[in-house]
Amino acid sequence: LVRYRTISKIPQITLNFVDLKGDPFLASPTSDREIIAPKIKERTHNVTEKVTQVLSLGADVLPEYKLQAPRIHRWTILHYSPFKAVWDWLILLLVIYTAVFTPYSAAFLLKETEEGPPATECGYACQPLAVVDLIVDIMFIVDILINFRTTYVNANEEVVSHPGRIAVHYFKGWFLIDMVAAIPFDLLIFGSGSEELIGLLKTARLLRLVRVARKLDRYSEYGAAVLFLLMCTFALIAHWLACIWYAIGNMEQPHMDSRIGWLHNLGDQIGKPYNSSGLGGPSIKDKYVTALYFTFSSLTSVGFGNVSPNTNSEKIFSICVMLIGSLMYASIFGNVSAIIQRLYSGTARYHTQMLRVREFIRFHQIPNPLRQRLEEYFQHAWSYTNGIDMNAVLKGFPECLQADICLHLNRSLLQHCKPFRGATKGCLRALAMKFKTTHAPPGDTLVHAGDLLTALYFISRGSIEILRGDVVVAILGKNDIFGEPLNLYARPGKSNGDVRALTYCDLHKIHR
């Protein structure tokens, strides 16, 4: 019993810090008490220290592992850092350059016999395009090294910054494609005289377009951006097909006994025919423009016929181009109408809503002055909100995010209106959640004399007048207030005048 009563005193000691020596009952000389009392004092002292730490809000209350900052290894790049964003855009520009100039170089340097010394005699450094290609190869190699040090988000939505895990993730992902696209074939085969082989191998750079397509997928929600990307894709495919079309004609031209190829026909049409040795002929500019003209006309199913396939190889390629053109029509131009419709969806919704308003007016036989006010209010409210119901949009977000959005939407009023000066951010967040926005066209009466005042109004834009009878008592403008002081009276009061809008007004109100 003594032991039980001794232990039962522990909660009292913990909360009230009572010393055991003052209790005459606990001072009985028993061996059990002498053993338990020192333990009680020690526990009391420890609990006292913990309570003191909690009340003082000291940093040592938290466990040590929670006080440590997340460790980022040296030379690790955050995937959302500004440097990584700028670097990704730079790589994107280099990939676009590669997609345009690599097929052009591979096709127009394929057994090209233009006048001038061969590239091997001039030297590697004197070729501007080769120098640019070398810079692109170096940048792609540097990009691989950067990807080995860039964080990523795993399946659990955690940012991984450990170098080993980053390397394994990159090896399992895009490393092989990036490595093949970054191989400097110019340096590996330079001086061997195989410019045709170098041009063909350099087309491996186009593998990076797969990554670019995935990154550009984030802009699919913007109709104008999608339309622009589709047109660029169409032009890029036409450019690639033009390079292939020229390569076919250029390879067949020296081996044909009869002059029936499209390059021969082009030379005869523009007065620059090929001679018996295969030299001469149109310039590279004429060849490229004509090839691009043929691919565009074939892809769009126009086909004027002034550039036509004559050999079997050219006919087979033309059939493939027609098939590609039909697929592009289905996948690209078939979506253009939907994209344009999405661009004008706001206008369509406006006309639909206006039609419903006019049908309501016609069905209920609203008189002319009231009908005009109804239409003007709808037009003004639509121009202010673009038909978007803010309350319906915010309803799907958590309250903390709703408060931040409301604070942002009402920031101008909260910053410049005098009653809100000096208020804490928590108070402003709470008030912003209570605001209701209303609009009024010129001549609209917001409050009639004798109406119950259940709200306090803040003028965000425009001006109003307060009338008693036919006498203008006051004219209020931006950041002015009218209405009933909230919670100042037990019952809502009545208006002693009319409140009429002089201009288009936007008002925020808080109800009782």
Results as ranks from 00 to 15, higher is better:
Glu64Asp: 10
Glu64Ala: 07
Leu67Met: 14
Gln68Leu: 12
Arg71Leu: 15
Phe83Cys: 12
Val86Trp: 06
Leu92Glu: 03
Leu93Tyr: 01
Thr102Tyr: 08
Ser105Met: 07
Ala106Glu: 01
Glu112Gly: 08
Glu114Asp: 12
Pro117Cys: 04
Ala119Gly: 14
Gly123Leu: 05
Tyr124Gly: 01
Cys126Arg: 01
Cys126Ala: 01
Leu129Cys: 04
Leu134Tyr: 06
Val136Ile: 14
Ile144Ala: 01
Thr150Cys: 04
Ser161Val: 11
His162Met: 09
His162Ala: 14
Pro163Lys: 01
Gly164Ser: 10
Gly164Thr: 13
Arg165Thr: 08
Arg165Ala: 14
Arg165Lys: 14
Ala167Cys: 05
Val168Ile: 08
Gly173Leu: 01
Phe175Lys: 01
Ala181Gln: 04
Ile183Met: 04
Ile183Gln: 03
Leu187Gly: 12
Gly191Glu: 06
Ser192Ile: 06
Gly193His: 11
Glu196Leu: 10
Leu197Gly: 03
Leu197His: 04
Leu200Ser: 04
Leu201Ile: 07
Ala224His: 05
Val226Ala: 14
Phe228Arg: 01
Thr233Gln: 05
His239Cys: 01
His239Leu: 01
Trp240His: 01
Ala247Val: 14
Glu252Asp: 01
Pro254Glu: 15
Gly261Ala: 01
Trp262Thr: 01
Asn265Leu: 13
Gly271His: 05
Lys272Glu: 01
Ser276Thr: 11
Gly278Phe: 01
Ser283Glu: 01
Ile284Tyr: 01
Lys285Met: 13
Lys285Phe: 09
Lys287Glu: 01
Phe294Lys: 01
Thr300Tyr: 05
Val302Met: 03
Phe304Ala: 05
Pro309His: 01
Ser313Lys: 02
Gly325Ala: 08
Leu327Ser: 02
Leu327Ile: 05
Ile332Phe: 05
Val336Arg: 02
Ile339Asp: 01
Ile340Trp: 09
Arg349Val: 08
Gln353Asp: 15
Glu359Val: 01
Glu359Arg: 08
Phe363Ala: 11
Leu370Pro: 03
Arg371Phe: 01
Leu374Glu: 01
Leu374Ala: 06
Glu375Thr: 10
Glu375Lys: 11
Trp382Lys: 05
Asn386Phe: 06
Ile388Thr: 06
Asn391Ala: 15
Asn391Glu: 08
Leu394Lys: 02
Leu394Glu: 01
Leu401Glu: 01
Cys406Glu: 01
Cys406Thr: 04
Leu409Ile: 09
Leu413Met: 10
Leu414Asp: 01
Gln415Leu: 13
Cys417Thr: 12
Cys417Glu: 09
Cys417Phe: 09
Phe420His: 03
Leu431Ala: 02
Lys436Thr: 12
Thr437Phe: 12
Pro441Lys: 08
Pro442Val: 04
Asp444Tyr: 09
Val447Ala: 02
Ala449Val: 13
